[in-house]
Amino acid sequence: MDNIYHQDNARATVNSVIDDPMTQFIHSIYHMSLIMIGLTVVSWVLLLLTNTRPHQHLPFPGYVPVIVIFLAMVTMHCIPGIAYCSPCKWMMAGLVMVCTIVAGCFITFELGLLTTVLVMLCVAVILLVLNFSGAKCPQEILPGGLWSTMLMLVLLLVLVVVGIAQLCTGNEELLETFVAVLFIMLVIAIPIQAQFNHGRLDVVEVVPREHLMICTLTVYLHTVMFFCCISYFIEVSEKKAATASTDVHGHEVESVTERNYN
Results as ranks from 00 to 15, higher is better:
Glu205Tyr: 09
Thr75Met: 11
Asn3Val: 14
Ile4Asn: 08
Asp8Cys: 04
Glu176Thr: 00
Gly144Gln: 07
Leu182Asn: 10
Asp20Ile: 01
Leu151Ser: 13
Gln56Cys: 09
Gly38Gln: 08
Val206Trp: 06
Ile67Leu: 15
Ser16Leu: 10
Leu156Ile: 11
Leu49Cys: 08
Leu127Val: 08
Ala103Trp: 02
Ala242Thr: 11
Met120Leu: 15
Cys99Phe: 01
Phe227Pro: 01
Val154Tyr: 01
Cys78Glu: 05
Val181Leu: 10
Ala135Asn: 14
Cys137Gln: 07
Met185Trp: 00
Glu252Asp: 14
Val161Tyr: 14
Leu47Val: 05
Ala189Tyr: 00
Gly62Tyr: 07
Val154Met: 12
Met32Ile: 03
Arg200Gln: 09
Met213His: 04
Asn9Gln: 12
Ala72Phe: 15
Leu113Ser: 04
Val98Arg: 05
Glu210Gln: 09
Leu48Thr: 00
Leu48Gln: 05
Leu174Met: 09
Asn131Ile: 13
Gln139Lys: 00
Leu186Gly: 02
Asn262Cys: 04
Gly112Trp: 07
Gln24Pro: 15
Met150Leu: 07
Val236Tyr: 10
Leu114Ser: 07
Glu140Phe: 06
Arg53Phe: 10
Gly134Phe: 09
Met73Cys: 06
His211Ser: 11
Ala244Trp: 01
Asp247Pro: 00
Gly62Ala: 08
Tyr261Ala: 07
Asp2Tyr: 12
Val45Ile: 14
Leu48Ala: 01
Lys240Leu: 04
Met32Phe: 05
